[in-house]
């Protein structure tokens, strides 16, 4: 069995019952077609890895943060080469594929931990939300900036955040597009452990070692009981996203982002 691998955008290893998935695509782990392909390779490998492991940690070795979300530049430039119908079809296919990846991570019998720092925006936030626990260093910021583009989050963010938190918090993040620091995120229950700068991975490893002490079947049964996957809402989210994506406002929003010289292009 392969216990480690390295691709263009990520690497993973499995040692002593703990799988670590490291994101390492500069500048900020934006999720484009290559990252998606690499994530698909990882979840395929997870089929075998999970037999030997009890915990999965997802983290980033990029200084800017955990993940800045979807690769909007790729989305914009790829879309420009396509007709309207193909553009929508392509987006739907991408969403179906990333949802399939995140659903595997969400429902794996492993206990999963997102060890996050810095920018944890959009699709990056959604990747963290697929995990069972979020351990954040105090410099982390969470954000759903999608409304700025005329879109909603498309990688399962709303249904998963609704599953975990009160709807008022979801509306705050979604409808204002503001980012939330880790201290506030811990106060509202999103972050399970708040740690010092650069300490998220250390804390995640310590937590994973605790998880190793438990019977894996019991942990998996407990997880199935408390963490149902909101499949119907996830499918609905894709439909809403694709409906919105066909509107001219989205093209204008993407162009504004890609061509912007604004000092705050990541801010709505």
């Amino acid at each position: 069995m392969t216990t480690s691998a390295k691709t263009e955008t990520l690497s993973w290893s499995c040692e002593q019952g703990i799988i670590e998935l490291e994101l390492h695509r500069a500048p900020a782990n934006e999720i484009g077609s290559q990252t998606l392909e690499d994530l698909e390779g990882f979840v395929k490998a997870l089929d075998e890895l999970k037999i030997e492991a009890a915990a999965l940690i997802i983290h980033s070795s990029i200084a800017a943060g955990f993940c800045a979300g979807a690769d909007l530049r790729e989305l914009y430039h790829t879309g420009k080469t396509m007709g309207e119908h193909d553009r929508i079809t392509g987006v739907r296919e991408f969403l179906n594929r990333i949802h399939a990846v995140l659903n595997v991570i969400d429902e794996t019998p492993l206990t999963t931990i997102a060890a996050v720092h810095g920018t944890t925006f959009g699709g990056g936030f959604e990747l963290a939300l697929a995990c069972d626990l979020i351990i954040a260093d105090k410099m982390t910021r969470f954000c759903f900036p999608e409304l700025r583009l005329g879109l909603i989050p498309g990688f399962g963010g709303i249904p998963r955040l609704k599953r975990d938190l009160g709807n008022a918090v979801v509306r705050d993040l979604l409808l204002t597009g503001r980012s939330m620091n880790a201290t506030k995120a811990a106060q509202v229950g999103l972050v399970s452990q708040l740690v010092g700068e650069g300490k998220a991975l250390v804390a995640a490893r310590s937590t994973a070692r605790q998880i190793l002490k438990f019977d894996r079947g019991t942990s998996a049964a407990a997880k199935r009981f408390v963490k149902p996957i909101p499949h119907a809402e996830l499918r609905e989210e894709i439909d809403i996203f694709c409906d919105l994506f066909s509107r001219p406002a989205v093209d204008a929003g993407l162009r504004k982002f890609v061509e912007s010289e604004d000092p705050y292009p990541y801010l709505p």
Partner: peptide, 15 residues
């Protein structure tokens, strides 16, 4: 600095 680094400053200020 760039926009992401400005967010780091924002987090520092909030804390």
């Amino acid at each position: 600095i760039d926009s992401l680094q400005a967010l780091e400053l924002l987090t520092r200020l909030e804390n």
